[in-house]
Structure formats: C-alpha cells, structure tokens
Amino acid sequence: SSEEQMCGTHRETKKIFCEVDRSLLCLLCSSSQEHRYHRHRPIEWAA
C-alpha cells in the first residue's frame, strides 16, 4: 500500500533499499547515523 511506502519519521517516500537491514528507507533515513555506512540500492533494484 502507499502508506507502507511513506517514512513515518520524515513523511518522505521510501525509495532506497538497505541491503544490510533488508528494509526500505527514505533518502533522509539512508543518510542517517544508523544507515550511513550500509550498502543501498534504488528500490527498483530490490523489486
């Protein structure tokens, strides 16, 4: 659903897949302290 594609923290669309956590992130989350050094892919890659 579209609600699942929205970041609850930043209200941004989740467009990035974190390979380490195997989760979807928004651009702001992907550059956060928690995920900054993880490997990321565009969401299309994970589909």
Rank of each mutant, 00 (worst) to 15 (best):
residue 1 S to L: 10
residue 1 S to Y: 08
residue 2 S to Y: 03
residue 2 S to T: 10
residue 2 S to K: 10
residue 2 S to F: 15
residue 2 S to V: 08
residue 3 E to P: 09
residue 3 E to D: 14
residue 3 E to H: 08
residue 4 E to D: 12
residue 5 Q to K: 14
residue 6 M to P: 02
residue 6 M to A: 04
residue 6 M to R: 07
residue 7 C to G: 05
residue 8 G to Y: 11
residue 9 T to L: 14
residue 10 H to G: 02
residue 10 H to I: 00
residue 11 R to C: 12
residue 11 R to H: 14
residue 11 R to M: 05
residue 12 E to W: 05
residue 12 E to A: 14
residue 13 T to Y: 08
residue 13 T to H: 13
residue 14 K to D: 07
residue 14 K to T: 03
residue 14 K to Q: 07
residue 15 K to G: 08
residue 15 K to I: 07
residue 15 K to W: 02
residue 16 I to Y: 11
residue 16 I to D: 06
residue 16 I to E: 05
residue 17 F to E: 05
residue 17 F to N: 02
residue 17 F to C: 01
residue 18 C to D: 02
residue 18 C to K: 06
residue 19 E to T: 04
residue 20 V to K: 14
residue 20 V to E: 14
residue 21 D to N: 12
residue 22 R to M: 08
residue 22 R to G: 14
residue 22 R to W: 04
residue 22 R to P: 12
residue 23 S to W: 00
residue 23 S to N: 01
residue 23 S to H: 08
residue 24 L to I: 03
residue 24 L to C: 09
residue 25 L to H: 11
residue 25 L to E: 03
residue 25 L to Q: 06
residue 25 L to I: 12
residue 26 C to M: 00
residue 26 C to N: 07
residue 26 C to G: 02
residue 26 C to E: 01
residue 26 C to S: 01
residue 26 C to F: 00
residue 27 L to F: 12
residue 27 L to Y: 13
residue 27 L to T: 14
residue 27 L to G: 14
residue 28 L to N: 13
residue 28 L to G: 10
residue 28 L to Q: 15
residue 28 L to W: 06
residue 29 C to W: 01
residue 30 S to R: 02
residue 30 S to P: 03
residue 30 S to K: 02
residue 30 S to I: 05
residue 31 S to F: 07
residue 31 S to D: 08
residue 31 S to L: 05
residue 31 S to E: 10
residue 32 S to Q: 10
residue 32 S to R: 13
residue 32 S to E: 06
residue 32 S to D: 12
residue 32 S to Y: 09
residue 32 S to M: 10
residue 33 Q to P: 15
residue 33 Q to G: 10
residue 33 Q to E: 14
residue 34 E to P: 01
residue 34 E to H: 12
residue 34 E to Y: 06
residue 34 E to L: 03
residue 34 E to K: 08
residue 34 E to V: 05
residue 35 H to P: 02
residue 35 H to D: 01
residue 35 H to T: 00
residue 35 H to G: 01
residue 36 R to E: 07
residue 36 R to C: 02
residue 37 Y to L: 14
residue 37 Y to I: 06
residue 37 Y to R: 11
residue 37 Y to S: 14
residue 38 H to P: 02
residue 38 H to T: 03
residue 38 H to K: 03
residue 38 H to F: 08
residue 39 R to E: 15
residue 39 R to K: 11
residue 40 H to D: 11
residue 42 P to I: 06
residue 42 P to M: 06
residue 43 I to C: 09
residue 43 I to H: 04
residue 43 I to L: 06
residue 44 E to G: 09
residue 45 W to R: 14
residue 45 W to Y: 15
residue 45 W to F: 14
residue 46 A to G: 13
residue 46 A to D: 14
residue 46 A to K: 06
residue 47 A to Q: 15
residue 47 A to P: 13
